[in-house]
Write a protein that binds this DNA or RNA. Structure first.
Lengths: 349, 349
DNA sequence: TAGAAAATTGGGAACGCTCCCAATTCATTT
DNA sequence: AAATGAATTGGGAGCGTTCCCAATTTTCTA
């Protein structure tokens, strides 16, 4: 009778009923044990747990999802444009952060890379199917606005990563791009810098736009005229920072804010190649402070992007929507700290 | 009666039965239409399709999975070590490739980033749950062998990306690392290079080991003594290529094979900084040929990693296992072509 | 045009779980 | 010791599909 006793873990396909029989209780009781429902006597609970342990039983997720209307899975939608996805450490960082957050919350995430000009309907139907994803995390990107609207309209729990482009009533999480850059530029001004340049991010990204805005606002608040020769657009890559700085050097800036650390590193290289020193001749500030760029010399003064917190906040928001229904529009803006290291110096003394 | 006609797409939760009623046929017939079963009359099929279209009906995936025992989802397991995940363009490329392959095959993939020293049991139970993933793609990495064995043992369809470390009977797909590097080194020898150095990949990775092996074998076949001063270990990053080349330069190599394009780029930078030219003074060969590193000057002679094909082969293999059961151990080794560009030159004339 | 064969259709059962409610057991009170 | 109430337990129904088989309709053949 008990011929299956010798732990056949292989392709385990026990059901609740099997466990029930093995432990001499009912299916319902086993279910209660598994889901930690209170109304089970200590003795029974322990015994059932032992049986579960030794059989290696695992509830069938599809069956569970069918009745509970919850899959504990969420989708992460990212644009798949070659240049950003590979060269910008932001995406790997984001993926890592979301993976970590999901792991913490016992969620699983599926990654959807959408071509910027892919058919919206197609990806929409792929993502928003019933009994599939509990909710969607959606990286904001310019050409994704239509898809974003469509998803929002469908009623599936949705949280946007980074602010949407058009101002709309879809909940999102973002960081203080404008304010933090303003702080950084103000710091440069306070420390006696007179010609502050910037290598911006791409102006078709929200962060690219916002960080430039922070730069401009700081200058304006201090009545410093905007000099277009001190502004150049980059693509967040080291290479573009290098080229951007080469472009800026003839205008003789005494400080440059690069909208990413990668670009800052490139900018420093260009500066050195021109026979100038950082921070001796030019102060350089970056943005991101991701772990892998911390061992640059000189250590970068930069703005810390709280990516881990960003991801966990986003997921928490999403899970709240899943559990309580998408409430009213919410935004969650995280502080980004300005961190002073060795690539800037005080020019007032 | 027909009060729901005005397309309430929002939170669509129609069932097969609803569609059946609306189209005046039975649930079974609608199911046949949806799954393209042959036995449905043309007229009925068209009518049902219309109803499906205008209601926006989508089958409930959990319900479907419950009976069909298939979720059309697969897991991709990658190690989450900071340095490789962020700095090596291989991982983004792989993720992109798998995403593309899955999209083509109508699969969805979930990404699992596992800490190198995470509890195997925990991640195992996360991944190998019933009614969850149809199969698993598993990036080979040294400390992942235990988890890999465990998954293999569980009977879940499994394909390893890159060869396992210990030779075992688990199906995998790989590229010809050894052979392709041998070809490249042979080319250098044929073109009159006398002192060929290498910047290897990390020797705790299979590709790092294999590419070094290719280098060594080529030298041995040509009776060229191995000079340890001409061998240095890198980490696949540009920085490590730069440092590696600095280390090699005192030995005056006339050619260097770097186990990744990133390292090759760093090596060229170090060469130039030392006042030497590529390929004038030193020939440099890379490995990867990923799209984002093609605009380097001089254009890199390199070995093309067929990442797209690699991913699609892996997924095809996995799907075959899902459909027909994991057959006997298989390996699928893809050719990696040697591509001659401008970073090497002929020294025989 | 009857009868047989083929094509189409409908409904029951099952997948493995959760949830509800009724039944049972146990502890408590008078 | 009986009555009351609380804690525990078991079983039915249902989640939305697919699959099987029987029933019905259509088409074909003699």
């Amino acid at each position: 009778m008990d011929c299956g006793e010798h732990r056949s873990f292989i392709l385990n396909s026990l059901t609740l009923e099997d466990i029930a029989k093995k432990s001499g209780v009912s299916r319902s009781t086993v279910s209660r044990v598994i889901n930690n429902h209170p109304n089970v006597s200590k003795k029974v609970r322990q015994h059932v747990n032992e049986v579960i342990q030794q059989t290696g039983y695992q509830p069938h997720l599809a069956a569970r999802a069918l009745v509970s209307k919850r899959t504990l899975m969420c989708g992460l939608i990212l644009p798949r444009s070659i240049n950003t996805f590979f060269t910008d450490p932001y995406y790997p960082s984001l993926i890592q952060g979301i993976a970590q957050a999901c792991s913490n919350q016992n969620y699983t995430f599926s990654l959807f890379l959408v071509d910027e000009n892919e058919d919206e309907d197609q990806i929409y139907t792929k993502v928003a199917r019933r009994g599939f994803m509990d909710g969607i995390l959606f990286q904001s990107y310019q050409s994704g606005e239509l898809l974003m609207d469509k998803l929002a309209e469908s009623g599936i729990p949705l949280v946007i990563l980074g602010r949407p482009f058009q101002n709309k009533e879809i909940s999102y999480v973002d960081i203080e791009n404008v304010e933090s850059v303003e702080d950084a530029i103000q710091y440069l001004i306070d420390k006696g810098h007179k010609k502050i340049g910037t290598i911006t991010g791409p102006q078709n990204t929200a962060v690219g736009i916002d960080r430039k805005k922070g730069y401009l606002q700081a200058l304006m608040k201090n009545d410093i005229p905007i000099d277009n020769a001190l502004i150049v657009e980059g693509t967040f890559t080291e290479e573009s920072g290098y080229l951007g700085m080469k472009h800026l050097l003839p205008s003789k800036p005494d400080a440059v804010f690069a909208a990413s650390d990668e670009m800052a590193v490139g900018a420093i290289r260009a500066t050195n190649e021109a026979g100038l020193e950082v921070p001796g001749d030019i102060s350089v500030i970056g943005f991101d402070d991701f772990p892998m760029r911390t061992m640059v010399r000189p250590a970068l003064t930069t703005i810390h992007q709280p990516i881990e917190q960003f991801c966990s906040e986003a997921l928490k928001m999403l899970i709240a929507f899943v559990e309580d229904g998408s409430g009213p529009f919410q935004k969650n803006i995280l502080k980004a700290d300005f961190i002073i290291r060795d690539s800037t110096r005080d020019r007032t003394k």
